[in-house]
């Protein structure tokens, strides 16, 4: 009996039925990281939704619409990328949709010029993104490692988008700033930066 045959015999004793809970093992670290981010802003910042009384719900709807859409899309993309043999180009392409919408809204943004840019809280915004994005990114990396990504840069990119999207979702209720230009500069750019870091580090972090 060859050594490979012997190995096959050993592996076959485990059976073909995989352990249950694959989705839970993938999602748990991502949900956990999102919970940590939520806890951080709750404990560190005061008065969420403070501008609703003056500005209405539109700004937070726009911010959350973008960030939650990106969060879900990047999570699904990571799930698909982690399953070998599937085409992942479509899943990656959908990740551009929220950014395209922001770009489309940026052009006719009626608030451009009406509000001072970059506003008063941009440093806090950047700090929040810089602190929380890596936390959620780490959760996404852990989740992806429970799967079998074979396109590691793509997986790292999607994990980076997820990290940034979670950070934005957690922080935006505390953000008083308005306008698509602000959103593009202080949310989209940090998210894309985190995605680029994921693209670069993916092959190292996700190797299996």
């Amino acid at each position: 009996m060859s050594s490979t045959d012997s190995l096959i015999d050993r592996l076959a004793t485990d059976g073909a039925t995989p352990r249950t809970g694959s989705l839970a093992r993938f999602a748990a670290p991502m949900v956990g990281a999102a919970a940590i981010c939520a806890a951080l802003v709750i404990f560190a910042l005061d008065t969420p939704f403070s501008t609703v009384s003056s500005d209405g719900f539109s700004p937070i709807f726009v911010k959350w619409g973008f960030s939650i859409a990106l969060l879900l899309l990047s999570g699904f993309a990571l799930w698909f990328i982690g399953r070998p043999g599937r085409s992942t180009g479509g899943a990656l392409a959908t990740l551009a949709v929220p950014f395209v919408l922001v770009g489309a809204l940026l052009l006719p943004d009626p608030l451009i010029g009406q509000h001072s840019f970059p506003g008063e809280t941009w440093r806090r915004c950047l700090t929040a993104m810089a602190v929380m994005s890596p936390i959620a990114f780490a959760g996404a990396i852990l989740g992806a490692r429970s799967l079998a990504p074979v396109r590691l840069r793509r997986a790292g990119f999607a994990a980076g988008l997820f990290g940034g999207a979670v950070a934005m979702t957690a922080y935006s209720p505390y953000c008083p700033e308005r306008g698509m230009l602000y959103m593009a500069v202080f949310y989209c750019l940090p998210i894309i930066t985190m995605a680029a870091i994921g693209w670069v580090t993916g092959p190292r972090l996700l190797r299996w």
């Binding site: 050594s3 490979t4 190995l7 592996l11 485990d14 079998a148």
Partner: peptide, 13 residues
């Protein structure tokens, strides 16, 4: 053999 191990370990995907 590495591939067989990987196929076996990642069969849940």
């Amino acid at each position: 053999q590495e591939c067989l191990i990987a196929i076996h370990q990642k069969r849940h995907t």
